[in-house]
Write a protein that binds this DNA or RNA. Sequence first.
DNA 1: GTCTATACAGGGATAGAC
DNA 2: GTCTATCCCTGTATAGAC
Lengths: 220, 220
Amino acid sequence: MASITAATETTHTSGDAAARIRAAAEALFAKHGFDAVSLNAIAERAGVSKANIFHHFKSKHDLYLTVVRTACENSAERLQGLSGESGAFAQRLETYAHGMLADMLGHGEVSRLILRELLSNGEQRGQEFAEKVFGENFARLVATLRHAQTRGELRSDADPAMIAALLIGANVFFFEARAVLRHFPDVAFARDPKLYSRMLADILLRGVLEKPTTKNPADK
Amino acid sequence: MASITAATETTHTSGDAAARIRAAAEALFAKHGFDAVSLNAIAERAGVSKANIFHHFKSKHDLYLTVVRTACENSAERLQGLSGESGAFAQRLETYAHGMLADMLGHGEVSRLILRELLSNGEQRGQEFAEKVFGENFARLVATLRHAQTRGELRSDADPAMIAALLIGANVFFFEARAVLRHFPDVAFARDPKLYSRMLADILLRGVLEKPTTKNPADK
DNA sequence: GTCTATACAGGGATAGAC
DNA sequence: GTCTATCCCTGTATAGAC
């Protein structure tokens, strides 16, 4: 949004400093958290003086809030783009799950920032933004699942919220435990998010119990 | 371990200060994270002087490591106690899932400490301890599931590691998102971990697809 | 808008009396 | 073992020149 103003910016590089500060702050905050990052570090990485940060932002807190807010907004926007798929429900589910996981992995630093904020309890920081992304994403997924339920694509006695919890939880798990899982040689999906999403969809759809499955009884 | 030495401790309260420091540190570190907690705050809460902390611990870092290590050890020990259940597989699964969730909720601060550490990437801190608990817990669950699989209680083509990921992920999700979920009036399980565990087991076992289920076809 | 210089508070850690 | 007093450094934030 508001990218039209960039047209006349050829002669000077004004406004650039603020952007560099934001970028540096995002990277460092995401990696180490709010308290572990000093303005000295941010200034150095952004190539500006420490005082310059205070010219663009009221305080360290203000800078942090800006970073978290835009990170959350961007994340929410990206996740929203995953909704409009078509096709069989099974395929849609897997596509959505993998899209979300791929987004988390592709924006790893930002994802960590949001997850950390979600874990951070009661501080006067960007927690509400993180909860907003989380909540909106969750609600949207639940709504989609509920819709599928009304069309008979889901068991009528399955709670859509529970399915959403399983899906999101599984993805967060993969994101957080990736490093640990790689130490287990017999975990097939440790380095393969696509496989993970496929297995996730499979178990979510069919369950884990051994039983005489009648495939595609009378689809739709 | 080593609680026999507590027998003769009646006259003085020596050793008490160190314990109070550990307790205060655990609470504060769990709530706010390493960097956000000052030794002043810990000393005040423990009712000792700041210098006294350095008499019992080499540094702030050392104190933190001690806290994380014991927290992880305790957590691992408790989780280990959940394994030895008997009965039908479905019931065992639900019992295990709920036991783990109840433990997380009952030791909320410590759980947050471990999760935070797991999220903290590359810092010179207790990350390895957190990964150890996580990994051991995961591996134990996978082994249990694999055993059940050999007995025909699970689909032979379902990856036990994937099931474990789903279970743990779902529990972590509940733990982290509890506060947010309560804002949604139509999420039935938001305030009911027992219900959550039941639904979790149900979906894990049976899947979400609408189909003509033949209940208990030929159990065992 | 950007810098240098500086103020001031609080951090972790130590010395030494008791 | 516990304290008071202190050291030194780094943190955030501000003042004021350019």
